[in-house]
Write a protein that binds this DNA or RNA. Structure first.
Lengths: 118, 118
DNA sequence: CAATCATATCAGCAGATAATGATATGTTAA
DNA sequence: TTAACATATCATTATCTGCTGATATGATTG
């Protein structure tokens, strides 16, 4: 469908964005925005189940958004790059302006609620 | 799991990012980066099927990333905000630095290929 | 070593998503 | 109005994703 090199680059970028594209993962990124936290702290703050949080942390890690660091029996997570936080802020700015459109979207083929235009 | 207002905000933000989180949609956003295009032009440039492109355009529209404008019998699409392009650029910068980690990630529970740490 | 705490992984399920081919809608022009 | 073109929608299918509960691994302390 797309030439190979391009497709590879797009898949990579899509993967990065997929890290951001789930409310649970955004909740995790949010609490990691300005500080490092252990898994237990993250679980407490986000109220995700331990297993769920661990899965999402694995995903975020694999997507390159966070890094882990073993500290004694704790594992401490932090954003892997300050620009991750920038992207979050930028998305909030954009949302503030285009939110109305986003409210309509419930799923991929947002047929039922799709706005009539624009 | 999260309090209602927070959950709403996170879901909204997740939806915005979900617009970016698919290679076909990124291909579309890419060709719209600096110009407005009709659906046919988009289909030609991205080599997506017409129906697939239309679905993705609907999704992008509902996520607030693009806007459509009817022009005669054509529909012209453009990015809904210049900061959308900024987010794309920013993601490319981040990727350039953390790409190695992302290469490992094939899906949510990227078990098979998960790097041993970091 | 045994107990405990912290984290990761597994199996399985329900629902979401992306693709396709076919069809429908809408717009313009002959 | 009919034909032709542009775009959207539908139905279907295969796959992916996120969640849960249970279990496993790993680290630390007594």
């Amino acid at each position: 469908m797309l030439i190979q090199a391009q497709a590879q680059a797009l898949a990579l970028k899509a993967k990065l964005f997929r890290g951001f594209s789930d409310p649970s993962r955004l909740a995790i990124l949010d609490v990691l925005r300005d500080k490092q936290l252990t898994v237990t702290e993250i679980v407490t703050l986000t109220r995700l189940s331990q297993s769920n949080a661990s899965n999402h942390l694995g995903c975020l890690r694999d997507c390159g958004l966070v890094r882990k660091e073993q500290q004694g029996r704790y594992v401490r997570y932090r954003l892997s790059d300050p620009r991750i936080a920038t992207m979050l802020s930028l998305s909030e700015e954009v949302l503030a302006d285009v939110a109305k459109g986003v409210y309509q979207c419930t799923r991929y083929e947002c047929t039922e609620k799709r706005a009539t235009d624009s």
